[in-house]
Amino acid sequence: MSESDAAPRDDSLARARDGDVSAFAEIVRRHQRLVFSLGLRMLSNRHSAEDLAQEVFLQLHQHVDEIESDSHLVFWLRRVTAHRAIDRLRRGPHREVDLSEADSVANESDGGDPLLARRLRNLVRQLSPAARAVVLLRYQEDLDPNDIARTLDMSVNTVKSHLKRSLMTLRTRFHEDGQIAVYDAGTPT
């Protein structure tokens, strides 16, 4: 379960629907990490990610009346963020990826290997927009294929295909650099 899903429930949504801006600000603070990170991993640029995140929350503010519950809110945020990010990528041209910019705050220590993590993030950036969104929703947001399908308006089969092929691509490219490419059919998730 993501941090957003686990957040304690209060009446900030109801107050925000009522026009309380400070309540809306609480909602932003609670969910900004989810929205910003999805944007960052999709667009590979902090400035663009913050721009996108602002757009998403401004759109939320205009449509907060339609949000029925906290879980609906999280679903809505993931869906709108992913779709907007995919649209931006497909419209192009994109700013040149500045890896140091994209990864500047990524080194929050969690005991992992930062170079390995950076390498994996670079590989994820090479996926197509749709595949990238699927991988992020699976591995950042911990969604199952059915939820990913609902979020992205795809069939479950397409989601599973994206996951299977993307993992295969990521593993293969990860093992390259002078080594024999390994084609691992992978386990359907």
């Binding site: 932003v28 902090r46 913050e50 602002q54 705050v105």
Partner: peptide
């Protein structure tokens, strides 16, 4: 591999003051 991928893609915070910038825009 998937665990490392999860770790690499963990969510990160935007720059400080993000929520304030959003609400300032709304106001």
């Amino acid at each position: 591999f998937e665990n490392e991928l999860k770790r690499a893609l963990r969510p990160v915070e935007p720059d400080a003051g993000f929520a304030d910038r959003v609400t300032a825009h709304i106001r």
